[in-house]
Amino acid sequence: MNFQPSILFSILLSIAAPFIGMLILGFDRKITARMQNRVGPPILQPFYDVVKLFGKSELMVKKAQILFALMFVGTLLLSTVLLCFGGDLLVIFFLISTGMIFYTLGAYSVKSGFSFIGGNRELYQMLAYEPIFMLTVFSVGLITKSFRVDQIFGLEVPLVAIIPLPLVSMMIVFLIKMQKSPFDISTAHTEIISGPMIEYSGGYLALLKIAHWYEIFLVIGIMSLFFVVPGNPVLTVVSMAAAGLAIYFVSIIIDNVTARVHWNTMLRLSAAIGITLIVVNVAIVYIVAYIAGGA
């Protein structure tokens, strides 16, 4: 039952990754607009935005920011490639975290109040979602006895059947990563004017947008790993894609029915709901295994 995605498929997927993220973002804006009873932009709008930004003149106040933006995109690119080639989930997780550190450093490196607060809030966000993310990766590791992505394809049942609750916890991570209400606190438009991004302009802002596309692909990719159907490549692709889109749709709904909360509420919620759910699920898995083993 060892299903290995072919190398060609992996290469294609890692090239297509940002564009998949872009398309999802385009649909997001369209669906959000429909939920608000309006027409909304064309699907390719995020693409136009980024291309336009590349054509603008640059007004960067600090050279260091350029470096940090490039490093941010670089780490995300690397982790995407790792995910596509079935690499180590733990390494992917650490790479994403490193990327966020570069992003935060970029925010701190300029002398701007809003950027500074944005950097602070980015750290609060990391404080909120990293434990959940890490515990989810650990619980996947506990089930598969390895942190490698391709091991998940070797399981006998889909992950979601064994550990569904971490998937719910990952929703919090997803909302934070996608900058959606109620956890869009670091880029809060009406409070700190898109926070860490405030001093970026032109092509470097476009880099951050592309990084966001990668993030979308990465987080959706990791979450849809729960829906791998072992031994059936076609069904796997279908169920992963369907699950990814469904997760995104749920996040759009949550975005549209909630207001932004304070950072301390976010920390409290993520600690109370996110971590508890994962711990409970892993405990249940072990108790069931113990009873089954004992019987």
Partner: peptide, 21 residues
């Protein structure tokens, strides 16, 4: 939250309010 849910799903299946100016 439930109130807004009703509204956004209503909007999703309703004709847009936009005047395509």
């Amino acid at each position: 939250m439930p109130g807004m849910l009703k509204i956004i799903f209503g909007n999703l299946f309703k004709k847009r309010a936009t005047r395509l100016y």
